[in-house]
Design a protein around this nucleic acid. Structure first.
Lengths: 166, 166
DNA sequence: TATTGTTATACTCTATAACTATA
DNA sequence: TATAGTTATAGAGTATAACAATA
């Protein structure tokens, strides 16, 4: 029976719709379900450019903050130092970012996007914004602003709760 | 210099705060940052019970839908069949869920929570709800409702867009 | 042929620890 | 001693393909 629709209205042995009412009580569950779609949409938008979301995000930050170090990149993206190494490796291999030496501190690099990196960033940023707008077309401009405000509020209160410690 | 604060107001070589303005333009970026906190909070709340978020979610659905099959569990949680095998394996090993035979269809199982599984579910559900409430204490009841509505709207519109196909 | 559950593989993201070279 | 970057390892979630048993 390749027909996905209900074969009849009976509630006998055949599959009644499976419910997730208990899980819907958690905002986190709803957020994860929504985020999966946003993530997949962004990934699909980017993959034509040869990057993934993580590397594209790193490129965004490097373009915006020329000569930042890998540690600073980690602070901005909330990632571990070891992760930054691989992301910058990939961006450098693609010729999008360069690790420049810093005479003042020979431990660290000054990361800078190459002209190719900046050009690709511009294309990706425009493309990503358009894709997200399309995905969120059901939301009004006000609703998108509301959502952004609420998400920021969650992040800020979570961070201050964490800093308050036990 | 173990002092994290600005050593002065100069903007010379020392680290000005790294910005992520470009990324903040994407709702998806803000959502990911907020979700990380919600996820970590839920994980911390659950780990004392010996489950992870994924297995706890599966337990929620099995308790709510007695005698569902693994495939139905997959539909509810939006996961792959191969993933469900491992989740149910773990829940069964812990004595929280049982795979019962189905005479009508010997391919599939009827999953059912054991009394221990139901008892643990009750404890976890109450604990999780309290933890999430604490994390989201900065949000009013109205704001939480708003957020849930917006997240659902995103999920629904994304699913219908996907079903519309290209 | 199609579906249920299973196994195996691989990729991404994440987390951790240990190491080097600098400071 | 502390920090910047690196390397290696492991766990978790996800995606895919192939397979046996059953429908």
């Amino acid at each position: 029976m390749p027909d996905g629709s209900k074969s009849s209205d009976d509630a006998s042995t055949d599959s009644m719709a499976v419910t997730d009412t208990f899980l819907r009580r958690y905002i986190g569950y709803r957020m994860k379900r929504a985020y999966v779609h946003i993530h997949n949409n962004a990934q699909a938008a980017i993959e034509g450019f040869g990057l993934r979301i993580t590397t594209s995000s790193a490129l965004h930050v490097v373009v915006e903050n020329p000569d930042l170090s890998q540690s600073q990149l980690c602070l901005a993206l909330n990632i571990e130092r070891s992760r930054a190494v691989l992301l910058v490796d990939e961006l450098e291999k693609l010729g999008l970012v360069k690790r420049n030496k810093v005479p003042q501190d020979r431990r660290s690099y000054a990361l800078r996007a190459t002209p190719a990196g900046e050009a690709l960033f511009e294309k990706i940023a425009a493309h990503l914004a358009r894709h997200e707008d399309a995905l969120l077309a059901a939301l009004s401009s006000d609703e998108k602003t509301q959502l952004a405000v609420l998400l920021d509020k969650i992040e800020r209160s979570a961070v201050s709760a964490r800093n308050a410690g036990a």
